[in-house]
Structure formats: structure tokens, C-alpha cells
């Protein structure tokens, strides 16, 4: 078959990107991995974990000027059952950490985490008894965003980086992996049923 982008002297250069049914018919050849990853990465529904001022920038990223829906992530889900990526936007206090960890546990696999801003990444300027020094102490973080707070463009960049990461995942090999109780973070925290019960009772 002829390539759709032939350059010929004296003619108009036409370039076709992506799937063109007139050329390729109604059949797409691809790998299952890439197809599934393509579905996944273009509809990463965020769990907006807005805890401080970063949440304002998160809202700006969702509004018309920056428009996160260009990347398929406009569906902010306030239910962890329906979301794919938790955007931790803001200062995580120890008191909130248990709730955050519990919401992360409730999210269905596959799930990803973006630590947005200095506070979520490292504790930021809050070197204090009350602030968790980086959300990666309790959940596995995929992308860190620098800034205090980061611009919406930085969040969109993080989202694109996460999409790249998602598109590289060999998911057919890991689909049946038993995730089981895992330990997360630098401290290897395992949240037990007891601590979740305690969070629930407060």
C-alpha cells in the first residue's frame, strides 16, 4: 500500500496522521497493550484531593482557559470508586493523611497519584509537627509537580507525563497480578483494618 504522505514534485503535500478509514478500511491493527493503554490514558478521571491553595490552580486547570478536558481528564470525580488518578493538591496534615490514605485504598485499580506542589511532594514550607513530610510517605506517587503553587500548565504537563507513563505500561502482563496488601512509600507504611476503622469512627 502506498504511504499516505508522499511528496511529489509540483503537487500539494498531504500528510495524514492517525486512522483514516478511506485508506486503511475499517480495520485497525495494533497491540492489545497499546489499545488498552490508549483507552486508559485518554480518560484519566481525577480524584481532586484539594487540600490547600494548590486546589485553586487545580480548578483553574479545569476551567476554560487551561481546559484539562483537552486531555480527557475533565471529569472530576468526588467518589474514589470512579476515579483513576488522585491529584493531591495541597498540604497534607497528619490528620488528613489517614483520610487520604483511605480514599486511595478505595480507588479501583488501576490508579495513579500526582503530587501537586511543594507541600504534597515534600511538606513544603511546613516543617512542622502537624504536616506529613511528603505524600509519598503513605501512597505511591507517579508524578511530582514543583511549584508553590504550580501553574495550571505545570499540572497539565504532569498529566501528559502521566499519560506517557500509562502508555508504556505492559498491562496485559500485569492484569492478573495479585495486588494484595502492599506497603507504600519510603517508610513502608501498611494501613491496617484497625486504623481504617478508627478513621471511620471520627
Amino acid at each position: 500500500m502506498e504511504s499516505p504522505s508522499l511528496v511529489q514534485a509540483g503537487t500539494v503535500v498531504t500528510t495524514e496522521f492517525g486512522y483514516n478509514s478511506k485508506i486503511e478500511g475499517e480495520v485497525v491493527h495494533t497491540q492489545l497493550d497499546s489499545a488498552l493503554n490508549w483507552f486508559r490514558k485518554n480518560s484519566l478521571w481525577p480524584m481532586p484531593m484539594g487540600l490547600a491553595c494548590c486546589a485553586i490552580e487545580l480548578m483553574a486547570a479545569g476551567a476554560s482557559r487551561f481546559d484539562i478536558s483537552r486531555f480527557g481528564s475533565e471529569v472530576m470525580r468526588f467518589s474514589p470508586r470512579q476515579s483513576d488518578v488522585m491529584i493531591v493538591a495541597g498540604t497534607v496534615t497528619y490528620k488528613m493523611a489517614l483520610a487520604l490514605r483511605r480514599i486511595y485504598e478505595q480507588m479501583a485499580e488501576p490508579k495513579w497519584v500526582i503530587a501537586m506542589g511543594a507541600c504534597a511532594s515534600t511538606g513544603g514550607m511546613y516543617r512542622s509537627y502537624s504536616v506529613l513530610q511528603g505524600v509519598d510517605n503513605i501512597v505511591p506517587v507517579d508524578v511530582y509537580v514543583a511549584g508553590c503553587p504550580p501553574r495550571p500548565e505545570a499540572l497539565l504537563d504532569a498529566l501528559i507525563k502521566l499519560q506517557e507513563k500509562v502508555s508504556r505500561e505492559p498491562i496485559t502482563r500485569t492484569l492478573k497480578r495479585d495486588s494484595g496488601p502492599e506497603k507504600y512509600g519510603r517508610l513502608g507504611i501498611e494501613v491496617t483494618a484497625q486504623s481504617i476503622e478508627e478513621t471511620r469512627s471520627h
Partner: peptide, 20 residues
């Protein structure tokens, strides 16, 4: 009480430790 906090010895909040 130090500003950095103290590590707590309770098992369910064991991840609290002194801030750097």
C-alpha cells in the same frame, strides 16, 4: 514541645516523626 514534633509510638499513627 519542639517545633519539629516528636515521633509518636502509637501503632496506627506510627508514621508521624519529627519533621526535618
Amino acid at each position: 514541645f519542639p517545633l519539629a514534633g516528636k515521633p509518636t509510638d502509637l501503632p496506627e499513627v506510627a508514621f508521624t516523626r519529627a519533621a526535618p
